[in-house]
Computed example of a mutant assay.
Amino acid sequence: MAHDDPRSPADADEQLLEVFKALANPVRLQVLRWLREPGRHFPVEEALADPREVGVCVSHIQAKTGLAQSTVSAYMAALQRAGLVRSTRVGKWTHYRRDEDRIAWLVEVLGRSL
């Protein structure tokens, strides 16, 4: 299903609820904010790949949050299910970046819904 063409208002509502659930956690909300400017918030010089292209390594997110790797992975999975981030594998590492097109679509749907 295309981001800008939900099958029904109920589908859009369901997607918005998934987003609200993901963002209800303050750490997940903060991580999403950090990912907006990865070069400012994460050690780019230690990155295996360009964080603007492939995202930020989960280990860097873990270090910045101070949380267990399993917790960070679960948080990132929730953000991914909500369509707010995309993951990319680089070797054995998973990198995350914001899905800006999806976020813009969600803002538009939210504006029409409320």
Rank of each mutant, 00 (worst) to 15 (best):
G111W: 04
Q30Y: 13
T94S: 07
P43R: 12
R86K: 15
G55V: 05
R52M: 13
Q80L: 10
N25Y: 11
L84N: 12
P38G: 03
H41R: 02
V85A: 11
R89D: 08
A77C: 02
E14T: 02
L106C: 02
Q15C: 04
S59D: 13
D5H: 09
A22M: 10
D13F: 10
E14H: 02
L79F: 09
S87T: 08
S70T: 07
R98Q: 09
H60Q: 15
G66N: 09
P43N: 13
A77M: 05
E108I: 01
R97N: 04
V85L: 13
V107N: 03
A49V: 10
H60I: 04
Q15W: 11
D5R: 13
R98F: 08
I103Y: 10
R86W: 09
A74P: 00
V56D: 09
E18A: 13
L32F: 14
F20W: 12
R33W: 14
W93E: 09
A82D: 07
R97L: 12
H41A: 05
A12H: 01
E14P: 01
D4V: 02
Y75M: 15
A63H: 14
N25M: 08
V27H: 10
R33N: 14
Q15M: 03
E37D: 10
A49E: 15
H95S: 01
V54R: 12
I61R: 06
M76F: 09
P6L: 05
D4C: 01
P9I: 00
R89I: 00
V44N: 11
S73Y: 01
V107R: 13
A63M: 11
R98D: 07
Q30A: 15
L23V: 13
G66S: 10
E37N: 07
V109C: 00
D101G: 04
R36F: 09
L32A: 14
A47D: 08
W93R: 11
V27E: 15
L29C: 12
A104S: 08
T71D: 14
R33V: 12
A49F: 14
A10Q: 06
G83P: 04
H41S: 03
L16K: 05
A74D: 14
R86F: 09
A47H: 12
V107K: 10
F20Y: 15
A47M: 10
L32P: 08
G66T: 08
V27G: 07
V31K: 00
H41M: 01
V90G: 06
E53G: 02
G83Y: 15
K92I: 02
E53Y: 01
P9W: 06
Q30K: 15
E18F: 02
R81D: 15
D11H: 01
L110I: 07
L48A: 09
K64H: 09
E14Q: 02
R89E: 11
K21P: 03
P6E: 05
G55A: 03
K21M: 05
A104R: 12
E18G: 00
C57F: 02
G83V: 09
H41W: 08
L110Y: 11
T94Q: 13
L23K: 12
T65F: 12
E100Y: 07
E45Y: 12
A63Y: 13
A68D: 15
V109A: 10
R40V: 04
S8H: 02
R112P: 04
K64A: 14
L35P: 03
L16W: 14
T94I: 05
K64F: 03
S87A: 11
L35H: 06
R98I: 06
A24R: 06
Q15P: 01
I103V: 08
